[in-house]
Write a protein that binds this DNA or RNA. Structure first.
Lengths: 349, 349
DNA sequence: TTGAAAGCGCTAACAG
DNA sequence: CTGTTAGCGCTTTCAA
């Protein structure tokens, strides 16, 4: 029934011009404290809600940033998004988040929608990097002059077509292995979930490949016997613990590198339950440093992918791009360093 | 440099009026196929992106729905959001998601922002139900005439101040217990995470209270000795398995009701690793039916909270409200029934 | 210090 | 079938 309240209603109520109201509402210095008060009061009384659409259209800036993520499951996104949020609030920016569920059409439509909504910038964790389709989307944003920062190191290192922030998985794996190496571990096991469903599989496959590669370079061995695979990314680690314990002791690795923190924690829990003392009898190293709800005895040393810091860095870069403090060219690639978060699950041999 | 392309640019390029372009782009029947083609072609060539802000402002409808959730961790939200997405796409609606991270100020600001963005409807999974603050937010949406559907059964059943969709936890607990009862379980254990941090604790505390209550009504016993608590919601279940196994056999419960599926799966994995056969030696019942990445031997019978169906129902209700097919009054409370998803982890005594 | 007027990009009546 | 003409609610010069 009652139409939506606009500044005209306020203007009429207070007896001033609408432009005065507009200025007063935004605390412009040109308006007397007195009128400002009356305007504010009327606004409250009338239950006025400023129309952001009109504001953006007229002002030419939406104060909106779009965030396109692959899925909600990814433990890496949660702290990063948290970081986006707080940074956005500090900058007076609203966030609009979308999840494409690894569906590339949805991903494309979503970004299209962002552009249509006149977002001032886009943070994008793409489903794939370097494909034709992906480059095309990037170009469209570019031609629409909407700055975009890729979240996570996507695409081919040879052709950097967009700003990006992330840590190299390769380097992170290397950091983990070097850490184990520094603790004199030679014979190493791996817990992985290559058999997991969907995109998870690819993730773990890549990590495993990197591990093999880098281990070779460091003179460490990853015996095929010591690569335990599971299809259950979340709880398969427990079963892996059981499999490990069934092995004759002399065949045990001195350390197990888990392909992600889920596997790592599950493994740790399983070993504990089976009476294996960590790190005395075996060391366990995780990967991701995903946020943890355990405050108990289970504490996993892990290679941190620095989700929070990545998030902060990404948003800062985007803000610079939006504000014009940072030039669109050349493309920036912010490569953060992985970090070993030392807890109790690793010890020297 | 190049200003953004508008319909005027297209109109100029094609040599027609801008309103013709507007209609042509929306496939209005009044425009000749020929001109439509030319317009479309020019639009593509010029890389035209329709300005959704202007469209919404002018058209008076934004085709935007806001979704306010507490956090990304909640496994219940993921399938529900998926459902929102697909339903939204079918209805030509765009979704804007926000997570408040259990921060009530952020929650409030977020909803405010939704209202300002002229969303046509809001789906809200509130941090709390029935508080003064919460009622106030509800009223504001109401006075802005933005329909809102609460996701999950929030608030006090006595005073229904908003539409809501969900399943009653109480009933779900009851369904679980009745199921165990029907399998002749008398002596029952509980795996809970009351010691978890943050809001999780409250959740588990409530569930435990309901369990005790309903168990009493059904003549089942929950011995305090058989209530195992952990602070690690995700992997604590493994440790609980170890604790259980340490007990002398005659004291074992015949079934364990896990307070959520994380605990349930962890427990199952732990028991397996410790050589306990499920369900032959003990039954395990989960709660939530969270999406599972395990396709392996671990398969947990669980009380489903019907996340997908809840999601679909919620969105449908909101669409009805937006479209005017459903009246704003009286408030609708759609209470879905929990369902036992029978897998392999429960058997009769 | 405030008011008048133009316009952001698009839609939607209506007129031609 | 296409062009004309008003707005949508707000910002932003420029006058007064």
């Amino acid at each position: 029934m009652s139409k939506r309240i606009t500044i005209l209603d306020i203007a009429r109520a207070v007896g001033v011009d609408n432009s005065t109201v507009s200025l007063a509402l935004r605390d412009d210095g040109r308006i007397t404290e007195a009128t400002r008060q009356r305007v504010r009061e009327a606004a409250r009384r009338l239950n006025y809600v400023p129309n952001q659409l009109a504001r953006s259209l007229s002002g030419g800036r939406s104060r909106l940033v779009g965030v396109m993520l692959t899925d909600m499951e990814n433990r890496f996104f949660s702290p990063a998004l948290e970081e986006f949020q707080t940074a956005a609030e500090r900058n007076g920016i609203a966030l609009s988040v979308q999840f494409c569920s690894w569906n590339q059409e949805r991903e494309e439509r979503g970004i299209e929608q962002f552009c249509g909504s006149q977002v001032e910038g886009i943070i994008w964790a793409p489903t794939d990097g370097g494909s034709e389709r992906y480059e095309c989307i990037l170009r469209r944003m570019q031609s629409a002059m909407i700055p975009c920062v890729l979240f996570g190191l996507a695409g081919r290192p040879d052709r950097v077509t967009a700003h990006q922030v992330g840590v190299s998985e390769r380097e992170a794996i290397r950091a983990g292995l070097e850490y184990l190496h520094s603790l004199h571990h030679q014979r190493m096991g791996v817990a992985t979930a290559v058999s997991a469903t969907g995109m998870r599989s690819t993730l773990h496959r890549n990590r495993l490949a990197h591990m093999r590669l880098v281990a070779g370079e460091l003179g460490m061995t990853i015996d095929d016997q010591l690569v335990w695979d599971t299809e259950d990314n979340t709880y398969g680690g427990v079963e892996i613990a059981a499999r490990l314990v069934r092995m004759p002791l002399p065949q045990w690795p001195t350390a197990v590198f888990a392909s992600d923190d889920m596997l790592g924690r599950a493994l740790l829990s399983g070993l504990r339950a089976l009476g294996v003392r960590v790190p005395e009898e075996i060391s366990v190293l995780g990967f991701d440093d995903a946020p943890d709800d355990s405050t108990g005895p289970v504490s996993l040393t892990s290679v941190s992918l620095e989700a929070r810091q990545n998030g902060a860095e990404t948003f800062a870069l985007l803000m610079g791009l939006i504000g014009g403090t940072i030039e669109a060219e050349p493309r920036r690639v912010v490569k953060l360093s992985p970090r070993i978060v030392q807890r109790a699950s690793c010890a020297a041999v």
